[in-house]
Design a binder for these strands. Structure first.
Length: 412
RNA sequence: GUGGGUGUAGCUCAGUUGGUAGAGCACUUGGUUGUGGCCCAAGUGGCCGGGGGUUCAAGUCCCCUCACUCACCCCA
């Protein structure tokens, strides 16, 4: 029979890899709960319309990258390409909102985007996500940034750079967009790269973070969003900056930082690393004060949050995250198989973790395996132990000290 | 969607102008008549990604295809 292969862009994570993901999830639970967040598990499948309305009909994610299909009754469903939309949907649907109430949630799990895989980019990828509803104050922006920073340093990543910008609000952004368009139209269109010529029409903001040197030079004097913020947005952004300065967070202001999803406004941020290939963003987020309303919730419920890309973070984690084991029960003589099994069960009842050899192998092979699984102790069952009702306990550190005791004595 | 690279042992890879396969690591066993990590030796293990073609002969040359991978694009 022919082998069945996994589909493109998904991964099987065996213990040595999945241990990193478990480590990140456990750390996120610890850190986020210290800030008052609770876990919210939301579905992977949602109605397609949810993502069209939140992410934006014109975005690449919605237009080209979603796993969308009809279910058996012809309803259009989509496997979530990001987490925020589903969290907001759950928040609105369950009527969590009340005036003045602040709600904080985190969630993690698989997301799906139909893209060509490359380093740090999978079709099924995983995010750790955190969101706050009901807090319009800049203190919330600052705390979210500090919590993200705290999480990243807890998993051992200190060399990441934070980039920060404000995208303005529905009041001031249209003015900026016009100013940007005017500027771009004043340029010699032919000198921009092909992509930027297209972006001028589809998404002018994107022209600003083109990597092409020529385009960078041409747009060097382009108007930036922070220069066109309205008074309220300006004040908000200034306060956020003051707060995180006071708290000691290191960051750089990037007036050209934009987000790929349409729902962001005001504070937007990205955490990047230069060590994971062409993809540099390991986390990103921002404020989305209009999203709750646009998904059918009440007006003026603010929101802010971020997502971390677990595949990309995993690439940066160093070292071994597999748990150590306490013991290995070595079976050197088949006659002792039953005793070895029972003995191992007894060890586990004492709360120890370890493995038992199922088939008798040479002493050499058994000890090598004990060594390999990093067992602290090896309990040997061979011919002597079988005949005498004993067990030989060998220390697996360098000393290799050992003693032989009767099995009934060992557990006293 | 567009480009580039790579597919040979479980893993990392050699394979010379075409003559039906090698190394290291890993694994098993032995040296050590029951004691690991070092060392030594032997052994197990390959439709050389798949299909077609050229040839007396193809891992090697040509075509097609599949998979993986990196980059563009886009994003976490």
């Amino acid at each position: 029979m022919a082998k069945i292969q996994k589909i493109k862009g998904v991964a099987d994570l065996f213990p040595e890899d999945s241990a990193r993901y478990a480590f990140m999830e456990e750390t996120a639970r610890d850190v986020f709960s210290a800030y008052g967040y609770g876990e919210l598990r939301v579905p992977i499948l949602e109605k397609t319309e949810l993502f069209c309305r939140s992410i934006g009909e014109e975005t690449d994610v919605v237009q080209k990258e979603m796993y969308t299909f009809p279910d058996r009754k012809g309803r259009s469903l989509t496997m979530r390409p990001e987490a925020t939309a589903g969290v907001v949907r759950a928040y609105v649907e369950n009527k969590i909102f009340q005036p003045g109430k602040v709600s904080k949630y985190f969630t993690f799990g698989p997301m799906f985007r139909y893209e060509r895989p490359q380093a740090g980019r999978m079709r099924q990828f995983h995010q750790i996500d955190a969101e706050i509803f009901g807090a319009a104050e800049p203190q919330a922006d600052a705390e979210v940034l500090l919590m993200l920073s705290s999480f990243l340093s807890k998993i051992g990543l200190e060399k990441l750079s934070f980039e920060l910008n404000s995208l303005g609000c529905p009041e001031c952004r249209p003015q900026y967009n016009q100013a940007l368009k005017d500027f771009l139209n004043s340029l010699d269109r032919e000198q921009l790269c092909d992509d930027c010529q297209r972006r001028m029409d589809t998404n002018p903001l994107r022209v600003l973070d083109c990597k092409n040197k020529n385009c960078k030079a041409l747009t060097e004097k382009a108007p930036t969003i922070p220069d066109h913020l309205c008074g309220e947005c300006r004040d908000h952004f200034d306060t956020v900056i003051t707060l995180i300065d006071e708290a000691g967070l290191k960051y750089t202001l990037n007036p050209r930082l934009v987000r790929g999803l349409d729902y962001y406004q005001r504070t937007a941020f990205e955490v990047t690393s230069g060590d994971i290939g062409a993809q540099t963003a390991v986390a990103g987020g921002g404020r989305y004060d209009g999203l709750v309303e646009s998904l059918g919730g009440p007006k003026k419920v603010p929101g802010i949050g971020f997502a971390c890309g677990m595949e990309r973070l995993a690439m940066l984690l160093e070292g071994d995250y597999e748990p150590k084991t306490d013991f290995y029960v070595a079976l050197v003589d088949d006659r002792a198989a039953k005793e070895a099994l029972i003995f191992g069960e007894e060890l586990r009842r004492k709360g120890l973790k370890g493995e038992i050899g199922f088939t008798a192998k040479s002493m050499k092979a058994q000890l090598r395996h004990a060594n390999k699984i990093n067992a602290a102790k090896c309990f040997i069952f061979g011919a002597d132990e079988f005949e005498n009702g004993t067990v030989t306990i060998k220390d697996m550190t360098e000393s290799g000290e050992q003693e032989t005791v009767t099995r009934s004595e060992y557990f006293k």
